[in-house]
Computed example of a mutant assay.
Amino acid sequence: MRSSHRAPFVAAVATAATLALTGCGAGTSGGNASPGAVANPSGSASAVSAPGTAAPATSSPEPTSPTTAASEPPSSAPAPAGLATYTFPDGHVSFKHPVDWRVELFSVGGSPFVGTATVYDAAGTKQATVYSGQIADGVTSPVTRTVFESVPVPGLRGQPAPAAQYSFYVDRVNEIATYRMHLTAGAPIPGAEMALDGIIRTAQGVLVAEVHFIEKPFASDEAAKSWLAGAEGQALRALLLSLSYS
């Protein structure tokens, strides 16, 4: 139930967020990268610009997942599998993922670094993207929101406000539901609100991280909650909560 969704009410306007620029470099973790452009890492579009190319980063296996009060899964969730750590080539952004998943990096530039890490599960299904760069733009529109969960991200504390949160929620427009699991700048507000662009400010740029769903991933909100409590939902929850910037 993963792959990028496009909400009918979000109009993304950007040029370089696809990272389909001349001289793009590709790196992989846990698999070989396939060349080509990468779609916008968020539900909103991003524009990026930076010179040069960056070297690929690697994932380092770890025996277990770290446990914090902010990232403990519900009691019904299975025990986490072994994790690997992926770090962007510039050394600033890192996150953890299951050891049998892989990461492909499409990058533009070395300093300042601009790139998108696409995360695939063991079956080769695209699960999430993490973008680190200098510019990201988004367009918002009115929605009615139901929030399932929103938790501060420990590794992004100390970055410019509003503080980064891992959030899972559904936005509705004319009874059309759009489910989103991603980083948000502050906690999403239930009820009537505007769509969120998911742009997190960092010391040297911006960060966008989002799980990718099919167009209609869940039959109901209860089905979404049930998925969150399962192995896949908890793995993606843990990935977003593990994001850090140094």
Rank of each mutant, 00 (worst) to 15 (best):
V170K: 03
A54G: 10
P217D: 06
A77T: 12
L243N: 01
E62V: 10
A219L: 12
R201V: 01
D171F: 09
G82L: 08
P160K: 02
T184L: 03
Q159I: 01
Y245T: 08
P152E: 03
W227P: 01
I214F: 08
H97D: 07
A50L: 08
S44G: 12
G115W: 00
V147W: 13
P66G: 06
R145H: 05
P154L: 14
I135Y: 00
P78N: 03
Q127T: 11
T28Q: 09
V147Y: 15
T140I: 15
P112K: 00
Y86D: 15
P78D: 06
D171L: 08
P142I: 12
S107K: 04
T116W: 01
S226G: 04
F88T: 09
P8H: 09
G82F: 01
G124E: 12
S44Q: 11
E210T: 10
V119Q: 01
A224L: 07
D197T: 14
I214Q: 07
G124H: 09
P63T: 14
A26D: 11
T64E: 15
H97C: 09
A185Q: 01
S141T: 14
G91Y: 12
S76W: 06
Y86L: 13
S141E: 12
G115A: 11
T28S: 13
T67L: 10
N32E: 11
L241C: 14
P217N: 11
E222V: 14
T178N: 13
Y131M: 01
N174C: 04
V211M: 08
S42R: 03
G230N: 08
A235G: 03
S76K: 10
S244K: 04
G91Q: 08
G233C: 08
I189C: 10
H182D: 07
K96R: 15
V114M: 00
A163I: 15
S107L: 05
E210K: 02
A84W: 00
L228V: 13
K225A: 03
L21P: 11
H97T: 11
N174E: 11
E215W: 02
H212F: 11
E210L: 02
P98E: 07
A33W: 02
K126I: 03
W227M: 02
A70L: 13
P35F: 05
S60A: 08
G191F: 14
E175S: 14
E215T: 14
P190R: 02
L156V: 15
T68P: 07
S246T: 08
Y169C: 00
A17K: 06
A81H: 08
I176M: 10
E222Y: 05
H92T: 09
G82T: 09
A192L: 12
R237G: 02
K225Y: 10
